[in-house]
Design a protein around this nucleic acid. Structure first.
Lengths: 155, 155
DNA sequence: TTAAATGCAAATTTTTTGCGTGATG
DNA sequence: CATCACGCAAAAAATTTGCATTTAA
């Protein structure tokens, strides 16, 4: 499987962040990193576990959670919390940035709008909060689900 | 207990939305609505349950969840999902609007920035999504927790 | 009297934790 | 041999569900 240059780069960033923190990159952990660096579909823990197991069948869920925890601590993954379902993870862009969430198929796309630190300061000045991060999600129906809906209606 | 005019108004909106939907406003449900209409601290289900029980001791958690579900369906409450802890509810402003979340004490404040429908359309035009709602949360340390932290450091 | 509301407890789902085994340097 | 990784299973925590009973139009 070929790996794109930016996936490769992202992977290296993750690895060195963990190494710098003093953790050992075991084969199982390496696979979690590799999947996260190469996925643009925001996998959840179950997805990651299943995929790691294809290569290392004895992998437990605890190991996946453990690896994600390490990545969170080092700022190498962005966790998208959903109480109604499993959390999703963005390993390609670990900084906070906007997402598009399809309320029908749960697909999640990245939105290319950079977060504005200026806004953090403005809000801080107004409210007294020391703002460190944001979460901006837009919820809607993705193009695919719109098509399906139309097909359903025209029947 | 006196009720401010806008709490009263909010309460009426909730009640009529539910009545219109054909559900009965029982005393327990009425109390849930009253608490939501009058709280600016974004209570969670446990908070609501405890408060309702002060008036109707036999109230079960299921009833609180059931009432919230009805309010969600009628667009009368905004649910703030947190996977790491219980969800929080905003009954005063059921439309999606930005929040300030203190990562230390879990306090949640409203931010007075209206949501821009124009942005929904712009994103739709660019991505093909049909955007219907957004979630914008800023995470940081509230003024109170900042003070506590300073006090701790200067000791 | 009939449908909706409710309490209670069990079930579900996701995530975390404790503990013992095993790999590694 | 000491530390960290890891599997396993149990524990936690939040929410949902099934079912029997009560309430209320």
């Amino acid at each position: 499987m070929a790996m794109s240059p930016d996936t490769q780069e992202r992977l290296e960033e993750m690895r060195s962040a963990l190494v710098q923190r003093g953790v050992v990159i075991t084969p199982k952990r390496a696979k979690v990193l590799e999947i996260l660096a190469g996925s643009d579909d925001h996998p959840n823990v179950g997805d990651l576990h299943a995929e790691v197991q294809r290569w290392h069948p004895s992998t437990s869920l605890a190991t996946v959670y453990n690896t994600i925890e390490l990545l969170k601590e080092t700022g190498q993954v962005l966790e998208l919390e959903f109480s109604a379902s499993a959390n999703r993870y963005d390993g390609r862009r670990p900084d906070s940035h906007p997402h598009l969430v399809c309320v029908e198929c749960q697909r999640i796309d990245d939105l290319d709008v950079p977060e504005s630190k200026g806004m953090f300061e403005a809000i801080g000045a107004e409210t007294g909060y020391e703002v460190v991060r944001q979460r901006l999600d837009y919820y809607g129906i993705c193009p695919n689900c719109q098509k399906k809906r139309e097909a359903r209606l025209s029947r």
